[in-house]
Design a protein around this nucleic acid. Structure first.
Lengths: 114, 114
DNA sequence: CGGAATCCTCTACGATACTG
DNA sequence: CAGTATCGTAGAGGATTCCG
């Protein structure tokens, strides 16, 4: 059996790849932050995130719902209202978001020269 | 002055957005993992990451170098060799990678039913 | 070996308009 | 209000070939 000439790090990469597949893109984490900050209505979320369009938001919300990270609730009435809430599962992303936020703060200091 | 009707969470989103801008895409973190796992040559790195092409790897390496996350070293000789190493600054991404890895492991358990 | 060049595809993302 | 429909674009990513 031939030894490979490079270091095998697939076991380290696989889970990271899994995570990236789910939360990749510019918007998903921002949407989760917005919802967990108190924005639960479609229009609220849209206004809270600069530059996001209705179409993109709509698609991302569907993605997040399929991945069980948010829940979509229909509130009957006139008019019908829709409410989005983060799931308890989304809370497991807390460490990821915190790590990214901390690093982002530090990185901005570094490139702007503090 | 009119109060906005949505919760303002821009201060929470901004750093996350900064971080996403730098490490976004399918490859950058995987490349960093590969290099820090012991792969320092272009071909080694390429072989260690399934499906990545030379062009994509080349572009990503340039990006990472510009963001001071890796260092490119030319080793004179016959033939000339190139060596990539992670910078000390890249180590600050450790928490991000760890958080993503942990979450990815957990997520895979969840969707595959353990 | 470590890429660059070329050409191509695909899709995330965007602008605008419209609807129940 | 909460989207959908349509059209369009840019760039990420891919396949293949070539080069010093």
């Amino acid at each position: 059996m031939k030894k490979s000439v490079h270091t095998d790090c697939s076991s380290a990469m696989l889970p990271v790849r899994d995570a990236i597949d789910v939360i990749s893109g510019k918007w998903k984490l921002l949407i989760l932050i917005s919802i967990s900050s108190g924005n639960h209505r479609f229009t609220e979320i849209q206004k809270s995130i600069p530059k996001i369009t209705a179409k993109v938001l709509s698609n991302e919300l569907k993605d997040l719902e399929q991945n069980k990270l948010i829940e979509r609730k229909i509130i009957e009435g006139y008019p019908v209202m829709i409410e989005y809430n983060t799931s308890s599962y989304a809370e497991t992303l807390g460490d990821v978001i915190k790590a990214l936020r901390d690093w982002g703060i530090n990185h901005r200091k570094k490139i702007t020269g503090k």
